[in-house]
Design a protein around this nucleic acid. Structure first.
Lengths: 177, 177
DNA sequence: TACTTTATTTAGTTTGTTCTAAACGTTTAG
DNA sequence: CTAAACGTTTAGAACAAACTAAATAAAGTA
């Protein structure tokens, strides 16, 4: 293989590692995705171990993360027990998936915690000390922001789904008639 | 202080710690911001040390981070050598600031790395192996996504600035005439 | 049934991050 | 000039995250 290509590939993978790290993911996740993304054909675990030179165990767990994020897909070949992975290349789709995922997990917990705190303060409010009122306003302010953010994300996802749906419907129509 | 209030406060601060951790920041950052956010008056370093019970050194550095993120503001009182901190409560403003910051740092590096890789591949392309063409398409696809994201963020910031500017102008007008 | 081939889990190590405690530097007050 | 009051920096401890190597599990093949 052409050495220009090799160093381009290296550079690219190094960049993805960095991005992964920036977003709080293990660097290996970036490297693995990069390797799969730049492979014309699906890769097996062992091929990945070769290409990114990290242990099989680590590849196994990180590949699982990538799959959970919807960034790669598992494939099987008949008469072959290996798993093969190829890259999801639609990044908006990936983003949508990740947003929806986060929605369900930590983000939601955060929202709920703030909501709970607000409830607690509201109970204490009966005795209406100054401080209770202050807490209430502040926490309400934060809750409002989180709610808006939540809405924003939900809207983004809904819009995207709508768009997809529309395209599919149009396609169906024109191919049915 | 009312025990309801105390536990509400604790719950809130615990929640913020968790959120901070989720976003890749030290948990102490969340706790400190929570303490400041729920304080009716600006807090000094030592008061923070008391309230969140972490060492002075840690408070010092984490407070600096918070300031850099635009989440708290430093204040001085005449005839008092202490620094006092109070909370920025406009979360959209905070978000905007952080986006702009990230823009300048890691995000930009990411974009540039992908761009560089593309350049490298394009040099190799002369010999036009199949693989080079494939790399080129893939990397181009990612670059396109990053460019769009970049635009999206820039637009968000610009819109918000425009909105602010408009309000200020209107205000100026009506108060001048 | 025993042997391969594959992926996953686990125990322990390595690495990186964040904290504490103490030293330091600076400024103000006495 | 010394002492006190601050905030910052630093060295090292404590902790958390991610990796490796080896054991384990699963599932085919001889």
């Amino acid at each position: 293989m052409d050495s220009e290509l090799i160093s381009a590939r290296e550079n690219f993978i190094k960049g993805l590692s960095r991005i992964a790290h920036f977003w709080g993911l293990p660097k290996a996740v970036g490297a693995i995705y990069g390797a799969i993304y730049l492979s014309p054909s699906p890769l097996s675990l062992d091929e990945l171990v070769d290409q990114v030179s990290i242990s099989k165990g680590a590849v196994s767990t990180n590949v699982r993360s990538l799959e959970r994020l919807g960034m790669i897909h598992k494939h099987f070949k008949v008469g072959d027990r290996k798993d093969y992975y190829d890259a999801e290349t639609d990044f908006w789709k990936i983003a949508k998936g990740i947003l929806r995922e986060r929605e369900k997990n930590e983000f939601d917990v955060a929202l709920r915690t703030v909501g709970d705190s607000l409830d607690m303060v509201e109970k204490a409010d009966l005795k209406s000390s100054d401080l209770a009122g202050f807490y209430k306003e502040r926490i309400k302010g934060m809750k409002k922001f989180f709610d808006s953010l939540d809405n924003l994300v939900a809207t983004f996802i809904a819009l995207d789904e709508l768009r997809e749906g529309t395209i599919k419907k149009l396609f169906k129509k024109s191919s049915n008639k």
